[in-house]
Amino acid sequence: MITAAMRRCLGAYAALVCLLAVLPVLIIVIESFTASDYVVFPPSGFSVKWYVESLQREEFLDSALLSLWVAVIASVVATALGTLVALALVRFRFPGRRVLQSLFMAPLSVPGIIFGLALLQFLASWGVARDMTAVIVGHVIIALPFAIRFVTVALIGMVANVELAAQSLGASPWVVFRRVTLPLIRPGVVASLVFAFILSFDDVAVSLFLATPGTMTLPVRIYVYIDQNYDPLITAVSAIVVMVAFLALGAIERTLGIGRLFGLR
Protein backbone atom coordinates (compact mmCIF):
# COMPACT_ATOMS: atom_id res chain seq x y z
CA MET A 1 0.00 0.00 0.00
CA ILE A 2 2.90 2.36 0.62
CA THR A 3 5.15 2.48 -2.39
CA ALA A 4 8.94 2.60 -2.24
CA ALA A 5 8.93 6.22 -3.43
CA MET A 6 6.48 7.21 -0.71
CA ARG A 7 8.60 5.41 1.81
CA ARG A 8 11.70 7.35 0.75
CA CYS A 9 9.80 10.62 0.94
CA LEU A 10 8.52 9.77 4.39
CA GLY A 11 12.05 8.83 5.45
CA ALA A 12 13.48 12.14 4.28
CA TYR A 13 10.66 13.98 5.99
CA ALA A 14 11.18 12.10 9.26
CA ALA A 15 14.90 12.93 9.10
CA LEU A 16 14.06 16.62 8.72
CA VAL A 17 11.68 16.52 11.69
CA CYS A 18 14.36 14.80 13.77
CA LEU A 19 16.90 17.44 12.83
CA LEU A 20 14.57 20.22 13.91
CA ALA A 21 13.75 18.34 17.11
CA VAL A 22 17.37 18.07 18.22
CA LEU A 23 18.33 21.61 17.19
CA PRO A 24 17.93 23.18 20.65
CA VAL A 25 19.61 20.17 22.24
CA LEU A 26 22.54 20.56 19.87
CA ILE A 27 22.88 24.24 20.77
CA ILE A 28 23.06 23.31 24.45
CA VAL A 29 25.59 20.55 23.88
CA ILE A 30 27.77 22.91 21.81
CA GLU A 31 27.54 25.63 24.47
CA SER A 32 28.55 23.18 27.17
CA PHE A 33 32.01 22.76 25.65
CA THR A 34 32.81 26.43 26.06
CA ALA A 35 36.04 27.60 27.63
CA SER A 36 34.43 30.75 29.01
CA ASP A 37 32.73 31.07 32.37
CA TYR A 38 29.44 32.34 31.03
CA VAL A 39 27.04 30.95 28.46
CA VAL A 40 27.39 32.40 25.00
CA PHE A 41 26.71 31.06 21.54
CA PRO A 42 28.85 30.37 19.57
CA PRO A 43 31.12 29.34 22.46
CA SER A 44 34.55 30.89 22.83
CA GLY A 45 37.16 28.16 22.78
CA PHE A 46 36.82 24.45 23.52
CA SER A 47 37.08 22.88 26.94
CA VAL A 48 35.60 20.08 28.97
CA LYS A 49 36.10 21.92 32.24
CA TRP A 50 32.37 22.29 32.85
CA TYR A 51 31.97 18.54 32.60
CA VAL A 52 34.72 18.07 35.15
CA GLU A 53 33.04 20.66 37.35
CA SER A 54 29.59 19.16 37.06
CA LEU A 55 30.79 15.68 37.91
CA GLN A 56 32.30 17.10 41.09
CA ARG A 57 28.98 18.58 42.14
CA GLU A 58 27.55 15.87 44.32
CA GLU A 59 24.19 17.59 44.66
CA PHE A 60 23.55 17.32 40.92
CA LEU A 61 24.46 13.64 40.90
CA ASP A 62 22.27 12.97 43.94
CA SER A 63 19.38 14.80 42.33
CA ALA A 64 19.86 12.97 39.04
CA LEU A 65 19.76 9.59 40.78
CA LEU A 66 16.74 10.63 42.79
CA SER A 67 14.99 11.80 39.61
CA LEU A 68 15.79 8.50 37.97
CA TRP A 69 14.21 6.46 40.78
CA VAL A 70 11.20 8.75 41.00
CA ALA A 71 10.66 8.53 37.24
CA VAL A 72 11.06 4.74 37.15
CA ILE A 73 8.66 4.12 40.02
CA ALA A 74 6.16 6.78 38.90
CA SER A 75 6.07 5.52 35.32
CA VAL A 76 5.58 1.89 36.34
CA VAL A 77 2.85 2.73 38.85
CA ALA A 78 1.10 5.14 36.48
CA THR A 79 1.20 2.64 33.62
CA ALA A 80 -0.06 -0.23 35.76
CA LEU A 81 -2.93 1.83 37.16
CA GLY A 82 -3.61 3.39 33.77
CA THR A 83 -3.83 -0.01 32.10
CA LEU A 84 -6.42 -1.19 34.62
CA VAL A 85 -8.45 1.98 34.13
CA ALA A 86 -8.23 1.71 30.34
CA LEU A 87 -9.38 -1.92 30.49
CA ALA A 88 -12.38 -0.91 32.55
CA LEU A 89 -13.23 2.05 30.33
CA VAL A 90 -12.86 0.26 27.00
CA ARG A 91 -14.02 -3.28 27.75
CA PHE A 92 -17.01 -2.50 29.95
CA ARG A 93 -20.13 -0.39 29.77
CA PHE A 94 -21.27 0.95 33.10
CA PRO A 95 -23.02 4.09 34.37
CA GLY A 96 -20.71 7.07 34.79
CA ARG A 97 -18.16 5.73 32.34
CA ARG A 98 -17.92 8.92 30.32
CA VAL A 99 -17.71 11.10 33.40
CA LEU A 100 -14.86 8.99 34.74
CA GLN A 101 -13.17 9.11 31.37
CA SER A 102 -13.16 12.92 31.42
CA LEU A 103 -12.28 13.08 35.10
CA PHE A 104 -9.15 10.99 34.66
CA MET A 105 -8.06 13.38 31.90
CA ALA A 106 -8.40 16.43 34.15
CA PRO A 107 -4.80 16.60 35.49
CA LEU A 108 -3.76 17.23 31.90
CA SER A 109 -5.27 20.68 31.99
CA VAL A 110 -4.41 21.70 35.54
CA PRO A 111 -1.12 23.55 35.44
CA GLY A 112 1.55 21.82 37.50
CA ILE A 113 2.30 24.92 39.56
CA ILE A 114 -1.21 25.12 40.93
CA PHE A 115 -1.51 21.36 41.37
CA GLY A 116 1.80 21.27 43.25
CA LEU A 117 0.71 24.12 45.51
CA ALA A 118 -2.71 22.57 46.13
CA LEU A 119 -1.18 19.20 46.94
CA LEU A 120 1.42 20.76 49.24
CA GLN A 121 -1.26 22.66 51.12
CA PHE A 122 -3.39 19.54 51.30
CA LEU A 123 -0.58 17.35 52.66
CA ALA A 124 0.53 20.04 55.11
CA SER A 125 -2.98 20.48 56.44
CA TRP A 126 -3.13 16.78 57.23
CA GLY A 127 0.31 16.85 58.73
CA VAL A 128 1.73 14.39 56.23
CA ALA A 129 5.52 14.55 56.13
CA ARG A 130 6.73 14.69 52.56
CA ASP A 131 9.43 12.36 51.32
CA MET A 132 10.11 10.81 47.96
CA THR A 133 6.65 9.21 48.01
CA ALA A 134 4.94 12.61 47.84
CA VAL A 135 6.85 13.50 44.68
CA ILE A 136 6.11 10.08 43.20
CA VAL A 137 2.40 10.40 43.96
CA GLY A 138 2.33 13.83 42.32
CA HIS A 139 4.03 12.44 39.22
CA VAL A 140 1.74 9.41 39.06
CA ILE A 141 -1.27 11.73 39.04
CA ILE A 142 0.06 13.88 36.19
CA ALA A 143 1.19 10.82 34.21
CA LEU A 144 -2.04 8.88 34.64
CA PRO A 145 -3.93 10.65 31.82
CA PHE A 146 -1.18 9.68 29.38
CA ALA A 147 -1.11 6.10 30.53
CA ILE A 148 -4.90 5.81 30.21
CA ARG A 149 -4.96 7.46 26.80
CA PHE A 150 -2.13 5.46 25.28
CA VAL A 151 -3.43 2.11 26.52
CA THR A 152 -6.98 3.06 25.50
CA VAL A 153 -5.85 3.77 21.96
CA ALA A 154 -4.14 0.38 21.83
CA LEU A 155 -7.20 -1.40 23.26
CA ILE A 156 -9.60 0.28 20.84
CA GLY A 157 -7.49 -0.91 17.93
CA MET A 158 -7.39 -4.44 19.25
CA VAL A 159 -10.07 -6.91 18.29
CA ALA A 160 -11.83 -8.04 21.46
CA ASN A 161 -12.79 -11.31 19.82
CA VAL A 162 -9.27 -12.62 20.34
CA GLU A 163 -9.79 -12.37 24.09
CA LEU A 164 -13.11 -14.17 23.79
CA ALA A 165 -11.51 -16.88 21.72
CA ALA A 166 -8.74 -17.47 24.23
CA GLN A 167 -11.24 -17.47 27.01
CA SER A 168 -13.52 -19.97 25.31
CA LEU A 169 -10.50 -22.22 24.96
CA GLY A 170 -10.33 -22.25 28.73
CA ALA A 171 -7.74 -19.62 29.56
CA SER A 172 -8.15 -17.92 32.94
CA PRO A 173 -8.66 -14.13 32.96
CA TRP A 174 -5.11 -13.57 34.12
CA VAL A 175 -3.75 -15.80 31.38
CA VAL A 176 -5.96 -14.03 28.83
CA PHE A 177 -4.59 -10.70 29.97
CA ARG A 178 -0.98 -11.85 30.22
CA ARG A 179 -0.84 -13.92 27.02
CA VAL A 180 -3.36 -12.24 24.72
CA THR A 181 -4.26 -8.70 25.74
CA LEU A 182 -0.90 -7.48 27.01
CA PRO A 183 1.16 -8.50 23.96
CA LEU A 184 -1.40 -6.88 21.69
CA ILE A 185 -1.50 -3.59 23.61
CA ARG A 186 2.25 -3.55 24.23
CA PRO A 187 2.84 -0.51 21.98
CA GLY A 188 0.46 1.51 24.12
CA VAL A 189 1.94 0.21 27.36
CA VAL A 190 5.49 0.99 26.29
CA ALA A 191 4.50 4.43 25.01
CA SER A 192 2.85 5.06 28.36
CA LEU A 193 5.95 3.94 30.27
CA VAL A 194 8.19 6.15 28.16
CA PHE A 195 6.03 9.26 28.43
CA ALA A 196 5.30 8.82 32.11
CA PHE A 197 9.04 8.44 32.68
CA ILE A 198 9.88 11.52 30.66
CA LEU A 199 7.10 13.64 32.16
CA SER A 200 8.32 12.76 35.61
CA PHE A 201 11.97 13.28 34.70
CA ASP A 202 11.18 16.68 33.14
CA ASP A 203 8.72 18.02 35.71
CA VAL A 204 9.57 21.22 37.58
CA ALA A 205 6.19 22.65 38.44
CA VAL A 206 4.78 19.92 40.66
CA SER A 207 8.08 18.89 42.26
CA LEU A 208 9.08 22.49 43.04
CA PHE A 209 6.52 22.64 45.83
CA LEU A 210 6.55 19.01 46.93
CA ALA A 211 10.34 18.81 47.18
CA THR A 212 12.08 18.92 50.52
CA PRO A 213 15.81 19.58 50.98
CA GLY A 214 16.36 15.83 50.83
CA THR A 215 14.17 15.23 47.80
CA MET A 216 15.11 17.77 45.17
CA THR A 217 14.74 16.27 41.73
CA LEU A 218 17.17 17.26 39.00
CA PRO A 219 14.80 19.66 37.17
CA VAL A 220 14.09 21.44 40.46
CA ARG A 221 17.81 21.57 41.25
CA ILE A 222 18.45 23.09 37.82
CA TYR A 223 15.52 25.50 38.12
CA VAL A 224 16.68 26.77 41.48
CA TYR A 225 20.30 27.02 40.36
CA ILE A 226 19.43 28.86 37.17
CA ASP A 227 17.34 31.35 39.16
CA GLN A 228 20.63 32.71 40.47
CA ASN A 229 23.33 31.63 38.04
CA TYR A 230 23.23 30.98 34.37
CA ASP A 231 26.64 29.48 33.76
CA PRO A 232 27.85 26.66 31.48
CA LEU A 233 27.58 24.22 34.39
CA ILE A 234 23.86 23.92 33.67
CA THR A 235 24.43 23.31 29.96
CA ALA A 236 27.00 20.61 30.83
CA VAL A 237 24.60 18.93 33.29
CA SER A 238 21.87 19.00 30.63
CA ALA A 239 24.23 17.61 28.01
CA ILE A 240 25.27 14.77 30.33
CA VAL A 241 21.62 13.84 30.89
CA VAL A 242 21.04 13.69 27.13
CA MET A 243 24.20 11.65 26.56
CA VAL A 244 23.40 9.18 29.33
CA ALA A 245 19.87 8.82 27.98
CA PHE A 246 21.23 8.08 24.52
CA LEU A 247 23.67 5.53 25.90
CA ALA A 248 20.80 3.87 27.74
CA LEU A 249 18.67 3.93 24.61
CA GLY A 250 21.59 2.47 22.68
CA ALA A 251 21.83 -0.37 25.17
CA ILE A 252 18.08 -1.02 24.97
CA GLU A 253 18.31 -0.92 21.20
CA ARG A 254 21.13 -3.46 21.21
CA THR A 255 19.40 -5.88 23.52
CA LEU A 256 15.72 -5.41 22.82
CA GLY A 257 15.30 -2.98 19.93
CA ILE A 258 13.33 0.18 20.65
CA GLY A 259 11.15 -0.22 17.60
CA ARG A 260 10.31 -3.77 18.60
CA LEU A 261 9.54 -2.61 22.13
CA PHE A 262 6.95 -0.26 20.73
CA GLY A 263 5.68 -3.20 18.75
CA LEU A 264 5.82 -1.21 15.55
CA ARG A 265 5.82 -3.30 12.45
Binding site: L10, A21, V22, V39, I234, F246, F262
Partner: peptide
Protein backbone atom coordinates in the same frame (compact mmCIF):
# COMPACT_ATOMS: atom_id res chain seq x y z
CA UNK B 1 7.03 6.41 8.49
CA UNK B 2 7.46 4.41 11.72
CA UNK B 3 5.14 1.74 10.33
CA UNK B 4 7.34 1.17 7.28
CA UNK B 5 10.84 2.03 8.52
CA UNK B 6 13.56 -0.48 9.37
CA UNK B 7 13.88 -1.31 13.08
CA UNK B 8 17.09 0.69 13.35
CA UNK B 9 15.60 3.77 11.68
CA UNK B 10 12.58 3.50 13.96
CA UNK B 11 14.76 3.51 17.06
CA UNK B 12 16.66 6.56 15.87
CA UNK B 13 13.54 8.53 15.03
CA UNK B 14 11.94 7.79 18.38
CA UNK B 15 15.09 8.59 20.34
CA UNK B 16 15.72 11.84 18.48
CA UNK B 17 12.24 13.26 18.70
CA UNK B 18 12.17 12.46 22.41
CA UNK B 19 15.54 14.07 23.14
CA UNK B 20 14.33 17.66 23.75
CA UNK B 21 12.18 16.33 26.61
CA UNK B 22 15.32 15.26 28.45
CA UNK B 23 16.55 18.83 28.81
CA UNK B 24 15.12 21.09 31.49
CA UNK B 25 12.45 23.33 29.98
CA UNK B 26 14.28 26.57 30.77
CA UNK B 27 17.58 25.43 29.30
CA UNK B 28 15.83 24.11 26.20
CA UNK B 29 13.87 27.32 25.76
CA UNK B 30 17.08 29.37 26.02
Amino acid sequence: YLTVASPRAKSWVIALILSPLLVSVIVRTF
